[in-house]
Design a protein around this nucleic acid. Sequence first.
DNA 1: CGCCATCTTGACTTAAAAGTAAGGTTTCGG
DNA 2: CCGAAACCTTACTTTTAAGTCAAGATGGCG
Lengths: 162, 162
Amino acid sequence: MKISAQEEYGLRALLQLARAETQGESLTLGRIARLEGISTANAGKLMWILNKAGLVQSQRGTKGGYRLARPASDIHLNEVISVLDNERVEAHCKSYTGVLDSCVHTGDCGIRPVIVELHQIVDNALSEITLSQLLGTEATVDAVLHKIQSTKPRAESIHAQV
Amino acid sequence: MKISAQEEYGLRALLQLARAETQGESLTLGRIARLEGISTANAGKLMWILNKAGLVQSQRGTKGGYRLARPASDIHLNEVISVLDNERVEAHCKSYTGVLDSCVHTGDCGIRPVIVELHQIVDNALSEITLSQLLGTEATVDAVLHKIQSTKPRAESIHAQV
DNA sequence: CGCCATCTTGACTTAAAAGTAAGGTTTCGG
DNA sequence: CCGAAACCTTACTTTTAAGTCAAGATGGCG
């Protein structure tokens, strides 16, 4: 049970956009990538998904970039996670045929209800948080960029462990 | 944000063991594999992890098999998930150096607290469920096995989608 | 003792996610 | 109308998780 890389980067990217929005700015891919600490190619893929899902709007050409498609106060985290949750696979039981309730364990499976409930709990918790609510503790785009630039490079492949 | 295959199979395997326990039985790898609809090789790997973590006890040789290391009423789902959560990677931010609080976004990152809180919510929810609580709605081992055997084979690679 | 059933262990293969690269398209500004 | 800035799209590579295989170790039972 963990958050995927796309989910985490997507949340943070949207938060950066929300922050930029308060200053009437949009953010280019390169800028988002630097803010996130990922490659522009990777950021491009991410933003394309968010764009397709209608969470952000893109503007091509000079002076282009991304901005939120809706007010930050109207974007709830559960929607973001839902969009980025890779293919939304939620159960792995190989005895499941793809048709709801047609798992051979149906009726005998005490685990599936737990998974469903778990998903609802997470969704409820995230649905109560909007991007604008997270803005309070955030620094400005420029401050973050400056901090990142003044930090020495490090390996890309290190993951946070708890 | 999804449950991994190991987590799901592990939960169900432990539930099968809890059910067997009520009849004073232990379960062999082959039996667990059939109950789960996975290969014995895969089940072996899974059970070895649970064994190493002290959740189950194994007995080799004739009349061997697995049984719960503790009463089902004493095994909470959060412990199971924790053991099976692959390497327990919980954040993907590549600007994170592996030392707690040393992410370049620290202090500017509004997302990490959300992830931490989310994890706690899930853990709390799971910590209130024990294996024995799930037993109520379960059929007997024999009933499940019979049902599985009477079901036609199907592709292994189909995943549940919601 | 010796054999069989069973778990153990590590190496290997396959499948999925993450990340990269490159060429194409659109827009703006001169 | 041209060129640079910026996004779009597809294909490819790398990494990680999932699943398989086979040889080894262990315990029970005749």
